[in-house]
Design a protein around this nucleic acid. Structure first.
Lengths: 141, 141
DNA sequence: TTTATGATCAGAATCATTCCGATTTAACTT
DNA sequence: AAGTTAAATCGGAATGATTCTGATCATAAA
């Protein structure tokens, strides 16, 4: 998934093009990390005076519905990041400082360690938290 | 961990005994599932008229600090359950309907599939979501 | 250019959670 | 048994994230 693909998807799904949508997508494309709604607002509000939280939230959930963004709950707030791809299943290392992520290619569900008759599995979450190289160094100074 | 152990721990740590604390602990002991703060309030407010949210939240976070409860974020709210044990590391199958849990004994971190130099690992989360036997049956009626 | 509908704004409303000052109570002291 | 003290609780206000609403605006199609 990239900005161009995302914009095409929006178009084919009948959503209108707006500069704000483009800029939100571009922001997520530039930053390979999880961002909260307020991070997005802050990043765009110099350019768009009076930008509304509503616009941010509405677009973030639209993009999530369309699979353009993926989301996780981190310390009580929803965070969003660009979907790495629509079909490649993966998990993340997540930096607790800056939200930057790295892929984990192996999935614990692959190894079929979970077998429980009667429990109907719908979804799963595997996340590893810590500090990325840059943030880790800052802490040790 | 059980109610008696939890109460002993509270005592040795210098916290006072109150009926509300006992009842909160008993509730978690009876229900082997994740409960939100409001679930706890609802369960106790017939007995304690005027029970305050503050009391619930204060005790839930105290119990969590002491390792009596463990917590997770589920669809935007904190949920709590009795700690299975202080030293046995485990993960959960979680029912999306009733919050009931089952243990997953294997941990994806055990197999050391995650190796990333420069990323300092602090914590991880592995949860499997779905429907337990009872809730799954209700859905298929 | 006009029009219809989707997008945005601004601010109010909601929901979970935390904070605060006043009051009550458990546990210790005399 | 009564007094003391610090912890616990209450009730309600404050906060922070998120959602809703009615009015206005802008995109895309006619």
């Amino acid at each position: 998934m990239n900005v161009v693909e995302a914009k095409e998807l929006l178009k084919t799904e009948g959503y209108k093009h707006t500069d704000k949508r483009t800029d939100i997508l571009q922001l997520f494309s530039d930053e390979s990390r999880y961002l909260a709604a307020k991070d997005v607002l802050e990043a765009l509000q110099n350019k768009y005076n009076g930008l509304s939280f509503d616009t941010i939230y509405r677009n973030l959930s639209l993009f999530t519905e369309l699979g353009i963004l993926e989301t996780t709950d981190l310390d009580g707030e929803k965070k969003f990041r660009f979907s790495c791809s629509t079909d490649y299943h993966h998990h993340h290392l997540i930096c607790l400082d800056c939200g930057k992520t790295k892929h984990i290619h192996q999935c614990p569900m692959d190894t079929s360690i979970i077998s429980d008759e009667g429990f109907q599995i719908i979804d799963h979450k595997f996340e590893v938290y810590g500090y990325c190289e840059q943030c880790g160094e800052q802490k040790n100074v």
